[in-house]
Amino acid sequence: MLEVRVLFFARSRELAGTNETTVSLEDGSSTKTLLLLLFQQYPQLEELRGNFVFSLNHEYLGTDEEQQLKAGDEVAVIPPISGG
């Protein structure tokens, strides 16, 4: 098993009801697996489906990009940004 830290921001934070969580995944799991798990664990996130991206260790992932996860990775749910 591997553990990753998942952070929620803005609308995703409100929907999840928390800033962050730790998720345990099978070794070799990818961001796609994590996505499925997050929707199971936080069905409220459905509101944002298709309207957020992940970042992995402070770099954006593409909408359809799949990356293998390793222990200690930091993933964030990034809804549309609005800085400035």
Binding site: F9, A10, R11, A76, I78, P79, I81, S82, G83, G84
Partner: peptide, 14 residues
């Protein structure tokens, strides 16, 4: 820079 910031920097406003 301000346009690029608005497109890429993970900051949100309510």
């Amino acid at each position: 820079a301000i346009d690029e910031l608005k497109a890429t920097v993970p900051i949100w406003k309510k």
